[in-house]
Every structure is written in C-alpha cells, then in structure tokens.
C-alpha cells in the first residue's frame, strides 16, 4: 500500500506542482486540490502510466476516482 500511495502522490505532485500534496486516504482531490475535468484526465493518464494499467470506463467520472482509497480500490481490481 505504501508503494501505491507514493506512486499516486507522485502523479498528483506532477499535476499540481505548486501545491503540497498533504492528503488523507478519503480526502477528495476535487475539494482539497481543486481537481477539475482537465486535471482529472491528467490524473487518469498518470495512473495508467505509473501502474501500467488501463483505467476502465466506470472510473471515468472525477467522483469515481477522487480519493486515495478509491484509487487503491481501482489498483487492487486491475492488478488482481
């Protein structure tokens, strides 16, 4: 889990270079970091590339993938 957390934080840091990524497992990226539809796409691309997965359609809404916990669930599902 720690490796995953580190990887996700790196993705977020690249998208929000001017912010300190101090975020709890259930904190919303939308509320805490100001993630919008454009930065959400960067997030999905970043997660796909960092973890070598394809994010499925049902995660294509920001509210479906806007916390660390939701991203852990996705990674667990996609990587078995």
């Amino acid at each position: 889990m720690e490796m995953e957390r580190k990887g996700i934080i790196e993705v977020l840091a690249a998208i929000f270079p001017n912010q300190t990524i101090d975020i709890g497992d259930d904190d919303s990226f939308i509320d805490k970091l100001g993630m919008d539809s454009i930065s959400f796409v960067s997030y999905v691309i970043g997660i796909e590339s960092k973890f070598d997965i394809e994010v499925p359609d049902e995660y294509s809404l920001p509210s479906k993938l806007d916390t660390l916990n939701k991203t852990y669930d996705l990674l667990g599902r996609e990587r078995g």
Binding site: I30, M35, D36, S37, F40, S60, L61, P62, S63
Partner: peptide, 11 residues
C-alpha cells in the same frame, strides 16, 4: 464549469 454539479449528469 462546476465539476461537482456537472458530474451529476454522469452519475
């Protein structure tokens, strides 16, 4: 442009 509102459509 307010994601939390627009998102309702997709939900």
């Amino acid at each position: 442009a307010i994601s939390s509102l627009f998102d309702f459509g997709g939900r």
